[in-house]
Design a protein around this nucleic acid. Structure first.
Lengths: 149, 149, 149, 149
DNA sequence: TTTT
DNA sequence: TTTT
């Protein structure tokens, strides 16, 4: 048994990529408010990485945007890999199998803003790194072994 | 909303420590079987870090042991800190507020074995590192700021 | 372990009542969409009863209204009582300890409409029946034995 | 979103039936301990109905027995039907899609006992009533409309 | 109608 | 007795 349910807001637009064999993967991070305030009376958040696969990946890439309130359901996964300095890095993420969009496009300032400044509202597409959440932009495609099913 | 429920087995005996102000903290890792087998037909596991505080921490330290099947309920937390090389390290863990022992002591081979070889069944107690899950054994006590409530 | 998480819409305004000893109780029903369509291609819903107590009860009564999208977390409870015909009736409900309002007042047509036609947006208050979800309006106050903690 | 996770013990052996079109359905009830004691210092339980379908139904019927500690994951469903007196009856149940057996056969007194007295450990099979949890033994097979997917 |  |  391994089940997590989160409600939070996307910290960026989602990123859609494809494995070498053509399977869609979308990743994003949710900012999930903590249920209490810290010593300085401020509410902090946990930044939790989400991965979705296949059809759900494409739906997420099409409908989710930075700032949107979103509910996510899935299992916790802990991957590890060796980074470019030979160190083992651990990545924890939620492999989601159910995502609910709690804010539709027309209630969103962000998309409004994107339209205003003429930016495309398409999801960004770039090659996938070994660590899908890192930004060290060494474009190594993940293998299909990362597929959860 | 931030809720996770896991069932798995402890990878080691739990570790009970105390913050400078005397609050009990217990940490352990659960091996949670994945719901599918990998390319080689083997079932892998996710190793998920658990933290408990106060009275629950003491109960866990008293009753849980390596290998025990255990159910855990809590919230996902992502902490980060700078390690001794000046790098930012991210730690994901479950802050549990509900733990259910699914195997009592007398159904456990491990404790049996421990008694057989005269090992104490006491929880280990050692000073807490900055990263409670690292093993780099630089004994820096965590601050009370890490308290979840 | 007994944990449920639901996202749905209130079928009516919530109802706030008080036990004889003065503890606040709020009840409402969530319409939760099923994840599939039925034989006629329509999406049905499950109508799930929710109870909250004390401070959370008052917050729910103050902020929730009919139609609002709401996330609820709690435990399933099955009560039973004898009805006025001497039959045992079973009531299943979620005793919530965490409620998240996913739509604030100013995104809601209903409250807008209520203000427009001069309706008060106060929660309704009426005496509590033996079965809090029945409408047979025999005003028997529940006992404090129903308190979940 | 509609997710529930429960840990409890079967109140009886599970019952395996088949819809007219031959789909397997297994039902059982879990006694789930409440997290607190009542006024008389006793711990009560909620008795929660579980339904499983298809392959999972057959696995449950094969491996679960009265008294076994079991974890169940699924969605809450509220069905209603008219009983033989023309009254509308509401049934709440968990439609499980994941079941974990927390006690295997050889740790169980019951099966031991069953073997000792020569009882078969086969699941009981009887025709399914309109209300699968009632015992009013009017053998009306449920329709395939009750299939969750 | 309930389990340990 | 049900919501969008």
């Amino acid at each position: 048994m391994n089940r997590s349910i989160l409600i939070g807001r996307l910290t960026k637009d989602p990123e859609l990529r494809y494995t070498p064999s053509g399977v869609a993967v979308t990743q994003f991070t949710l900012a999930v408010d903590r249920p209490f305030t810290n010593g300085q009376g401020q509410r902090e958040a946990d930044f939790i990485n989400i991965v979705t696969w296949r059809k759900l990946a494409e739906t997420c890439a099409n409908y989710l945007r930075k700032g949107r309130l979103t509910a996510v359901e899935g299992r916790i996964q802990v991957r590890n890999y060796e980074n470019n300095e030979g160190r083992r890095v651990y990545v924890t993420e939620i492999v989601a199998d159910n995502v609910r969009f709690l804010e539709s496009a027309n209630t969103q300032r962000d998309d409004q803003h994107n339209q205003d400044i003429g930016m495309p509202v398409e999801p960004s597409r770039k090659p996938m790194n070994q660590d899908p959440f890192s930004d060290d932009s060494k474009p190594i495609d993940i293998s299909d072994d990362d597929l959860p099913f």
